[in-house]
Design a protein around this nucleic acid. Structure first.
Lengths: 153, 153
DNA sequence: TATGAAAAACCACGATG
DNA sequence: CATCGTGGTTTTTCATA
């Protein structure tokens, strides 16, 4: 099954990544298939897990999280116990909207959303209270040029 | 009207950030309000732009973009012409799913989604063909510990 | 293409605090 | 007097036959 989409699938996915409220009817216009064909393909893509879910995206400013930080973390202990605790900490903190273990095995990058600098400070204290890190440094986003959930398909 | 949510609004937003397909009925169960009260608040939050849109999220592996790169870019020219061209380049490249100008005014961070290393190489060549950068370095994501679109509310 | 069931998209009234 | 809940209506979409 996996990854053999045709152009129709790709167009369906592209549209739904922009707007998941489209009805099968509206989709069919944009994609160039009948309503039912669209609906069937959509269902297949959902059942196959290509479409993971549909979510609402909020305005960060209006939702009260206008400040984004990119946090670089380095550890010197790469035992599995530390990693488990780190993962648990990451999952428990909703301010962390992205957490990536990078090539090199010692480096992590976080994307953190907070209200302001005070919010970041509180986050920082909370984090280092949960796990030990040998080095941590944050940069702050001055301007969000692009922030998309759409994968290139 | 801006940012005075009460707990009900927050719970509605939290639920819709997890699953935007919930009906007003289902929402009402989880939030503890009547169907119509939920619907009314949802509409207000939409009209106010707190809810920006609803989108489908794809599985990166199944959609054929399993490799994520974090790209650090430095420039020495901060004239507005360079910035305009850089922004245009960023917007024109769908592989770039995030682009942030960081504190310091010379540094940019990109999040890039590609199929594999060959895909990254093609992306890299394309990017440097469009804008001049004085320094560019990529790290690759070994493990995605968390990747969420939900803001902490 | 047709169709029954469901949900969306509203409106209106009376109650509540 | 905002906002709740209840209970309606009409229209649209779903999900299949």
């Amino acid at each position: 099954m996996q990854s053999n989409f045709d152009d129709f699938d790709r167009r369906i996915l592209a549209e739904l990544q922009k707007d998941a409220t489209l009805t099968a009817d509206q989709l069919s216009e944009r994609v160039g298939l009948s309503r039912n064909a669209c609906w069937r393909r959509m269902k297949i893509l959902e059942d196959a897990g290509v479409i993971r879910k549909r979510v609402a995206l909020l305005d960060p400013v209006k939702a009260g999280c206008p400040l984004t930080a990119i946090v670089n973390i380095r550890t010197n202990q790469h035992d599995s116990d530390w990693m488990t605790r780190f993962q648990a900490a990451v999952r428990s903190m909703p301010e962390i909207t992205g957490a990536y273990r990078m090539t090199g095995d010692l480096d992590y990058v976080l994307r953190v959303r907070v209200a302001d600098m005070a919010g970041y400070d509180a986050f920082y204290k909370c984090l280092i209270g949960k796990v030990a890190v040998s080095d941590i440094s944050a940069s702050f986003v001055m301007e969000e040029i692009k922030d998309s959930t759409a994968l290139p398909i």
